[in-house]
Design a protein around this nucleic acid. Structure first.
Lengths: 261, 261
DNA sequence: CATCCATGATATCGACGATAACACAGACAT
DNA sequence: ATGTCTGTGTTATCGTCGATATCATGGATG
């Protein structure tokens, strides 16, 4: 096998196994059965090695992404791209941190292509007159928000145990960059998993828009609960009421026209 | 001066001057006129030194933030918090990267307090019935989006030369977490200087007049209660919940805690 | 005075990034 | 065949870094 490929493979493996994302060139050389000068002749620098390694990991990911067929609706492709971005970040946290959380290896080929694919989808949306802002600005916003949630999930899993934050942020950004006439197709024509829990309150369908959402009311009441704490309820009653309000505010979907047995 | 404070000051200075955010304990010791064992006795570890340094920079930032007076409209405070967060990231890029772009020194006191301040603002919004999601979820989303744009501005200034991305993202997230009746200001908020006075012109009238009355929230929730009836609650639970909401909506206690005119 | 603890200073260890110096093999032209 | 050039493998080394062992000193306190 090519020595360069062997070194990159070993570096990628060590990087994935490293808990802190820091690997040493010596360890890479030992794993790849190569001396240090060979590594420095091939990559010139440790940054070059890391860049090539991350580029390789991204390339494996992008090859799958490139093979994906374009949907008829570019909005579906946009959502798929967001989800695959988040999935890649969670699957390769160390490589992702190197690419999006540090100044090492900026603007590698794969990262540029990822951004290019995103822009292509957004330009398709713009061609259909569904974008509220320019594709360049929309791409900036989508990329920044996506990296924000991905880094939060990677770096702070304990503070952000909620796995739905990616879907929520995705729908928020989608609603922000799309025109108003397009915000009705958000929650239904999507992957069958559980992404419809993002914004069921106000605009998911015609059924709920008429009545005030109980989630919002529960949130409001819960926040105002300390004002009534003193006189009328015991501590236990308040605790139980708070539990129930929490249950209501976390309800996923309340469409009465759907799901009722 | 305290040796610990001297070391932290020197470390902060070196960190701010470092182009890549990597400082050595030896350089810190030389700058602070201290031997290495002293540093290790005081901070135990390099991570401890970095954590204390970043904590110190954050504390300076938070002292300004804490001193800021609360506005009558929590939405104004939310926007101010967002802008100051972005400004701090741009003013202290290296410290910001350490705190939000790496696993070093997670969950320090200052970072926790920053999140707590954000949650306080969001809870005030929730108490006024203007929040579409729970304060915890809204805080997650706001923080993730804010760090996303800040890191994009810091790490990729050439790819993101647009300085309005922070304001755009801010309004997108604001529109996403607020209820529909409150989302009328996102049309144009590009003015970077007058972020404090741009918003309240059109909405502060409707917003401030809304009192954080638990009675109103109870009425709203009670009206929406049939939507959550099936599935999550038993008939007896629903009956008791309805009784309690009735008790809350009939409360006659006057809230003297809030002195807003 | 004796004991103990906090601080200071020197030297050192192992790991790391990076490179110099040298050896060796093949390709090619003359 | 000889010489030169080039690419590659090997050893040894340099300077830096994080971290620590070791010893000395200087008070406090009893």
């Amino acid at each position: 096998m090519d020595a360069r490929a062997t070194i990159i493979e070993a570096a990628a493996q060590l990087l994935a196994d490293s808990p802190h994302g820091d690997i040493s060139t010596r360890a890479v050389c030992e794993a790849a059965q190569v001396q240090q000068p060979a590594l420095y002749r091939l990559f010139g620098d440790k940054a070059g090695l890391l860049g090539a390694t991350v580029d390789h990991v991204w390339d494996r990911y992008l090859s799958v992404k490139r093979a994906a067929v374009k949907s008829a609706d570019p909005l579906v492709d946009l959502r798929r791209g967001w989800d695959s971005h988040t999935a890649f970040a969670l699957a390769n946290p160390q490589a992702y941190r190197l690419l999006f959380g540090s100044t090492v290896a900026v603007a590698t080929d794969s990262a540029a292509e990822a951004l290019r694919l995103l822009r292509e989808v957004l330009e398709r949306l713009a061609a259909e007159g569904r974008l509220r802002v320019s594709p360049a600005i929309a791409a900036q916003q989508v990329m920044a928000a996506n990296t924000g949630v991905a880094l939060a999930l990677i770096l702070r899993p304990v503070q952000n145990p909620d796995k739905g934050i990616s879907e929520r942020m995705r729908e928020s950004i989608v609603a922000a960059i799309l025109t108003d006439t397009d915000t009705d197709t958000d929650a239904d024509a999507d992957d069958p998993a559980s992404t419809d829990s993002s914004a069921p309150t106000s605009e998911s369908g015609a059924a709920v828009t008429r009545t005030p959402a109980p989630q919002t009311a529960a949130i409001t009441l819960r926040a105002a609960l300390p004002l009534v704490a003193s006189g009328s309820f015991s501590a236990n009653e308040l605790a139980l009421l708070d539990d129930w309000l929490d249950r209501i505010q976390n309800l996923t979907t309340v469409d009465e026209s759907d799901g009722t047995p």
